[in-house]
Design a binder for these strands. Structure first.
Length: 428
RNA sequence: GGAGGCGUCGCAUAGUGGUUGAGUGCACCGGUCUUGAAAACCGGAGUCUGCGCAAGUGGACCGAAGGUUCAAAUCCUUCCGCCUCCGCCA
């Protein structure tokens, strides 16, 4: 959420940002509503002041054992008027906050303007090269090695739900453990294991609601949502809290499954592991002082890159353009791993700085040591990294001519020493 | 799922209709004392928001939302959360 005072004082900046994002939004309506709201508030406060004064007078009369009847009678009208104006204020505030909730964050000046075609590759690590034999896509590798069962996943839950089998399941678990261990032991993150279902307040706090309700799985009875990312529960750890400056920055990492309905994306990337309804992800979340957030973003990206480097995967870092960046983010880098079987760059991480946008919605603040003032923190998060697509990259990059897949060295201790996945024979 | 209890300013608590936006203790900040510290003593401190260049001056906030009343932390209704016991259960 943007600060209404910021909007008021920087209407041009906000309009410019909306324009860069390609948003159609009438900001002047917001500014007019705010003006009206303040006018009502002024009138209301004055009446309430009169009421408070009169109440003091009534109290004094009672103390002096005098009859307050006359004073009381004269206050009835004021009380009624206050009720009436309070109702007006409520309507005005509701309208305003509804609009404020759907205004996206102001994009940072450093990012390219335009749609996804203007995304900028900042750097690349490794070479995008195909093996010297006929590289197969991961779907064929999975089938040959019998490590992912697409048909049974669909039988159990529905299309684009995945059943990992045997070494496939083990690989998934190995990756999760490897990544969490890396972030906790080398990058200074504290490990968390949050609920995979969250309430409406949490979803609103990080900005998924109200805009993206139809993209999520929802439990009607309880009004709970399956998390689309660990960002939601982990950022909301500190919702409605005032942190101490000395505790900042706070780094958390968490593995969670992630659930996405992907409504409206049918027909797009529907083959294999690219776009599935439930996937695993290790997430990194930061709470930092405002002046540090852009430095922290660079470090966050480096932490995610460390995973891909350790796995020996070729990737590139892409700075998202203003039209492609998410609702709550001011600046965002995607990490894309190269998958030779598909001959495609797959988005496996997204690292964003939200500035105080989420903190304002979720009311996450800190008290300055020197200033004693309470201020909003800046929040960031990044995938470190998302599975399924990383599994694709591993399978397609490490496939051998004989159809087996070599396990990257860092994962072997997590695979019980296994260094290669080979075709399993037998019924199961 | 059933029965009961409870939600007050960082923490613990006092407060059952009118000098209560709210007392006390701990924690916190400043000062006195001390070589320094501790203790003791004195003092200070909540959050949000309106108007104002500012000094300042209003308003709101006792889990949330409604209601009763001239007046609500206090009474009523609904909701949310937590605790205890019983039931069920990985």
């Amino acid at each position: 959420m943007l600060d209404i005072k910021f909007i008021r004082d920087n209407a041009d900046v906000v309009k410019g940002s909306l324009e860069k994002r390609g948003y159609k939004f009438n900001l002047d309506e917001v500014i007019a509503l705010d003006e009206e709201r303040r006018k009502i508030l002024l009138e209301l406060d004055e009446l309430r002041r009169q009421k408070n004064k009169a109440n003091d007078a009534i109290t004094a009369l009672i103390k002096e054992k005098k009859d307050p009847k006359e004073k009381i009678a004269s206050m009835k009208g004021v009380a009624a008027k206050i009720d009436e104006i309070e109702a007006k204020l409520r309507v005005s505030e509701e309208q305003l906050s509804k609009l404020l909730m759907v205004i996206p964050n102001v994009v940072h000046e450093s990012i390219p303007v335009g749609d996804s075609k203007n995304n900028k590759v900042v750097r690349q690590w490794g070479e995008a090269k195909k093996p010297d034999f006929n590289a197969r896509p991961h779907t064929q590798i999975c089938e040959y090695l019998d490590i992912v069962d697409f048909a049974r996943g669909a039988k159990i839950a529905g299309s684009n739900f995945i059943l990992y089998k045997k070494s496939g399941a083990r690989l998934e678990r190995a990756l999760i453990n490897f990544m969490v261990d890396l972030h906790t032991s080398k990058h200074g993150y504290h490990e968390m294991w949050p609920p995979a279902l969250v309430n409406r307040a949490s979803m609103t706090g990080t900005g998924q609601l109200p805009k993206l309700e139809e993209d999520m799985y929802r439990l009607k009875e309880e009004d709970l949502f399956l998390i689309p990312t660990a960002e939601v529960p982990v950022t909301n750890i500190h919702r409605d809290e005032i942190l101490d400056e000395k505790d900042l920055p706070i780094y958390y990492t968490a593995y969670t499954p992630c659930f996405r309905r992907e409504a409206g994306s049918y027909g797009k990337d529907t083959k294999g592991l690219v776009r599935i309804h439930q996937f695993d992800k290790v997430e990194m979340v930061k709470f930092v002082k405002p002046e540090d957030s852009f430095d922290e973003l660079e470090k966050l990206v480096a932490n995610a890159e460390a995973v891909l480097q350790a796995l020996g995967l070729t990737y590139r870092v892409v700075m998202l353009a203003s039209g492609d960046i998410s609702f709550a983010a001011a600046k965002c880098y995607d990490l894309e791993a190269y998958a030779p079987g598909l001959d495609a760059w797959l988005e496996v991480s997204s690292c964003s700085n939200f500035l105080d946008f989420q903190a304002r919605r979720a009311n996450i603040r800190y008290r300055g040591k020197e200033t004693k003032k309470v201020e909003f923190v800046h929040t960031l998060n990044g995938s470190g990294v998302a599975l399924a697509r990383t599994v694709i990259a591993i399978l397609e990059n490490y496939q051998q001519k004989d159809g087996s897949v070599v396990i990257p060295g860092v994962l072997r201790p997590y695979m019980g020493g296994l260094d290669r996945i080979e075709r399993q024979t037998g019924r199961f």
